[in-house]
Simulated scan of single mutants.
Amino acid sequence: MKEKKQFKIKNLPIILLSLMLALLYLSPFYIIILNAFKTKKELFQSTLALPLAWNFDNFVEAFDRLDYLKALRNSLFVVITSVIVIILFTSMAAWMLERTKSKASSFIFYLFISSMLIPFQAVMLPLVRVMGKLNLLNMGGIVFMYLGFGTSLSVFLYHGFLKGIPKELDEAAMIDGCNKFQTFWKIIFPLLKPISVTVAILNTVWIWNDFLLPSLVINKPDTQTIPLRTFFFFGEYTKQWHLALAGLILAIIPVIIFYAVAQKHIIKSITAGSIK
């Protein structure tokens, strides 16, 4: 009993620090959720006080003014298409770079890694100019650009994961008559499920929340994503924070659902791997 009490006393500072950090991390969500239910007058009176009445009209008005269903459809198209393309191309590239031991493959791999150091702001204007000349300032063009910007990190993650997959599997598949294409898709790619889910989560959150690139590429109102439509509440002379916060909550709900579902797949994959 004494040992248990001593153990609890020793861990008390760590527990308190963890609680403080958790409260600090959750405080923005608390402010957003709380103020999304307030009227504009209540919000400016006090941002931390509870609303006098939980007002759901903000969500109804934000849903209507965002044209939420159309914006959601556009965001889903861009995110799903981009993530699928990133997973397919980067997994194949990482497999070939990891399995091919040469100076050229090492150079290409480190070239991918070094590209992560280049900030988007340094290339955005030349990129938009070039894509404009190619008539790719549209939803198809933005998917192509997301593939370029998402490749470096995804290749890095896949490359590290592939080191843990024995090369004997490739050799056994070749002996059984599989070509390289069949070896990858039938043998290697199914084993990449845990890291593929991780790559999907990272890229989905990044692309879903991205505002800068779509604002440069997508100019038509019918093709705007949710972050672009949310900016509609911030005018030159007035800012409708109560509607903007309600719109932000509507915007993050799909990501939270996706993350919850994907998290289950990660746990299942890790459990299955440990049993094998």
Rank of each mutant, 00 (worst) to 15 (best):
L17I: 10
T238Y: 11
F184H: 00
Y110M: 14
I256S: 00
L212Q: 11
L125S: 00
L136P: 09
F161K: 04
Y30M: 05
F7H: 09
A172E: 09
I275Y: 11
K41W: 04
G141Q: 11
D170M: 10
K163F: 00
V79P: 03
V83I: 12
E236T: 15
H159P: 04
K4G: 03
V78N: 05
L69N: 06
M96F: 15
L43E: 05
S27P: 00
N219R: 15
K101W: 06
I253H: 01
M124C: 08
T230I: 13
N209C: 07
K180L: 09
I195P: 02
V143Q: 08
V130Y: 11
Y146G: 06
F161R: 08
F37Y: 12
F59R: 01
S46P: 03
P194T: 03
I87A: 09
S82F: 11
L76G: 03
F258P: 00
I267L: 08
G235F: 06
L52S: 13
N179F: 07
N138V: 09
E42H: 02
T39F: 02
G132N: 02
W54R: 03
N11R: 06
S75F: 00
T47E: 08
F107C: 13
L88G: 06
P190L: 00
I187F: 04
F7A: 11
D64C: 01
I165K: 05
H242Q: 14
L250G: 02
L72Q: 00
L50A: 11
V60C: 00
W206K: 13
I267K: 10
S152H: 12
I256F: 01
F44L: 10
F112Y: 07
E236R: 15
T198V: 05
F234I: 15
L245P: 06
W241L: 12
G150I: 05
K239S: 13
Y259F: 11
M20H: 07
V197M: 01
K186M: 03
H265S: 13
K70Q: 13
E236W: 10
I207F: 07
S27V: 06
Q121W: 08
R129P: 01
T204S: 12
N11A: 04
